[in-house]
Design a protein around this nucleic acid. Structure first.
Lengths: 144, 144
DNA sequence: TAAAAGAGGCATTTGAGGTGCATCTTTTGA
DNA sequence: TCAAAAGATGCACCTCAAATGCCTCTTTTA
């Protein structure tokens, strides 16, 4: 019942980039969050494929937001990385439950999911980002 | 991102019982849903421990609802079986994310979870139950 | 006292996700 | 033109929670 680490890394990367305009390296992001570079790289690839970020290869390359932090919704990122948030198979897949036609559960969980996503979709990336200064300050504290 | 089968079985068992007053055997429930008796038995035990159903051992024993279908909320059952519905560790556990103090994500996902549970808590078991006739009808159809 | 029925524990399997590594491709600049 | 930087990609293994099945124990009734 929780988001995968991939989604977590993707969101963190977006937050990092949104708080620090310009181009940054995957290595830099990974070190900032103390995560393996490989994991960040995989989240980054998907983010690039889905158009959230732009990545540039080669010397001086790196990644940067491809869209404004205001236009990216947290819910959209979660959906792209998690697929459905369906709580039960019967919400998204046909023919799973023996009593399906007579069971109101399907509708109830679909509605629960809808309410959750509706809210997450209403939250733009920009809303969860704090100025880079605050992030930096905390990291320095943490390192001491 | 979905409920465990245990939770699924628990909900189905409750629906079965709510639609058919009186005492029923675990074996009967298992056969109705075409699930292994063992799995149902385990969900049943937890349901009994948490006071949703009453179980009676021995000859002529079985299980039955211990509370009214109106007083049992789907959300409560889900919480009891799934623990937290937190989407991210940082929502329910301290000290997971490096940037936690500067990250608005924690609050956002907590709110998303709250909205989902608020809805699920508002749905009573009685609302997702159809008369036994409907269930029976479908099963007969399915068996042909 | 035997049979019914739930309680409980254990051992195994399984699959998704996490993790690390090796290699390829692109790009730049000396 | 070539070496180094940096992202892209695929592969293999690991890990852990959930699922699964089985066996035995305990309670209850006729």
């Amino acid at each position: 019942m929780r988001l995968s680490l991939q989604t977590d890394y993707a969101l963190r990367t977006l937050i990092y980039l949104a708080g620090r305009p310009g181009r940054h390296q995957v290595r830099e992001v990974a070190e900032f969050f103390r995560i393996s570079k490989d994991h960040v790289a995989k989240a980054v690839r998907r983010l690039a494929q889905q158009g959230y970020i732009r990545s540039v290869r080669g010397v001086g390359g790196g990644i940067e937001l491809a869209r404004s932090a205001e236009s990216i919704s947290i819910g959209q990122v979660v959906e792209d990385f998690e697929g459905s948030l369906a709580l039960l198979d019967c919400v998204s897949i046909e023919g799973v439950c023996t009593i399906q036609p007579a069971c109101g559960l399907r509708h109830v969980f679909a509605e629960a999911e809808r309410r959750q996503l509706e809210y997450l979709n209403s939250v733009p990336l920009s809303q969860v980002v704090r100025p880079a200064g605050e992030l930096q300050e905390f990291v320095l504290l943490d390192l001491n």
